[in-house]
Amino acid sequence: MDIGAEQLQTGLNMASKVKLSPTQLPRLYNILPPICEQLEIKEPEFYLEMNPAPNAYAFGDTQTAITITSALVDMMSEEELIGVVAHECGHIACRHMLYHTLAQIIANASGMFETLAKLAVPIHYALMYWQRKSELSCDRAAAYIVGPKATASMLARLAGGPKSITSELNLEELAEQADLYDAFCKNGLWNKTLQTYAVMDQDHPFTSVRVREMLKWVESEDYQNMVKNNPVCPHCHKAIDASWKFCQHCGHKL
């Protein structure tokens, strides 16, 4: 049911953020079209928001938009930023936004109405669980577009900070932390209970888990077939022919 959430957010985006376009900060805007072409989605509106917190988010099911923050742009390399935008486009391609919006509406309404809050609790936690799983799907979209190394480093930035601090980060060791975390959770009912409580209200999985699950997926036959059947240029990330020696879009050697 349309209750105006998309129209509300569309107006706020237009009024308070910088809308990126071919003539408005084109270096940032030009990240988006090749990704949309690869994922076969209609191009969403693309916004830059001044915010000291590194973040990106997609909104809307019919009026779609992606927002990236100024802190995120400062923190990420160009390839990592492409991975972030590909992740958000993955939400749009998978039609996740309807349920993300529903989760937000329930959360907001529950805060206003005590009776509704009690009824909405199980629905809220079910949606949070589903949303965490949806983030893993979109990490796969990022890995498909920009490759597993850039996707893992993008996720690592969100865990450890900017490249000036984390440039020598061991990504495999970061992924291994997820195995240590699983073992920790299994070491006693109390540990498992505490960690279940810690994650149940999170809309994203913990970072080490995301890195591990993404790296596991790129070893799968599904990923190998996708890359083989739909190759992309590692420089401009546009579709290429496997017979090309040079990318006919950007000119880089393949």
Rank of each mutant, 00 (worst) to 15 (best):
V209K: 15
A126F: 05
A152V: 00
L180F: 10
E37A: 15
T64P: 01
E80D: 13
Y197L: 14
E37N: 15
L136D: 01
H204F: 03
Q131S: 11
P33Y: 07
Y129P: 02
H235W: 10
M154V: 06
I35Y: 15
A5V: 11
Y29D: 14
T62K: 15
K245L: 13
A141P: 05
K216Y: 02
H252D: 09
R95C: 13
T23K: 15
S137W: 07
Q63Y: 14
I31V: 11
Q224T: 03
E172Y: 09
D139K: 00
A15L: 06
Q63F: 12
E213N: 09
M50G: 13
T151P: 05
V218T: 08
A159M: 06
I66D: 10
H235P: 02
H124C: 02
T115G: 02
I92Y: 06
A15F: 02
D61K: 12
E213Y: 09
D241A: 08
I68G: 01
H235F: 14
Q131A: 05
A183D: 14
A103W: 01
A56Y: 12
H204C: 14
F113R: 03
M14T: 09
E213Q: 14
T23C: 15
K216N: 10
E168R: 11
H100F: 05
Q104V: 08
P34F: 01
D139E: 04
T207L: 15
I3S: 04
K163F: 07
P122C: 04
G4D: 03
S110C: 13
S134R: 12
T64E: 07
L169E: 08
P205V: 00
T166F: 02
H87E: 01
K216S: 04
T193V: 04
D179A: 15
L25V: 09
L169I: 10
V146L: 09
E176I: 09
E6C: 08
V18K: 13
H96M: 06
T115S: 06
T62M: 13
H204N: 10
S208R: 08
T166P: 04
Q195R: 13
N229W: 07
D139L: 00
L215Y: 05
Y99N: 13
E78D: 06
T115H: 00
K149G: 07
L12G: 05
Y57L: 03
S70G: 01
N187T: 11
L20M: 04
V232I: 09
P234E: 10
K245V: 13
N230W: 00
K245I: 14
F113C: 12
V209I: 11
E219M: 02
A117V: 01
E219P: 10
W244F: 12
L171D: 08
P26F: 00
F59H: 05
I3N: 01
C247F: 02
E114I: 06
Y57R: 07
S21R: 07
N13S: 00
P122S: 00
Y223M: 02
M50D: 13
C138F: 00
K42I: 10
E168Q: 15
E173Y: 07
F206A: 06
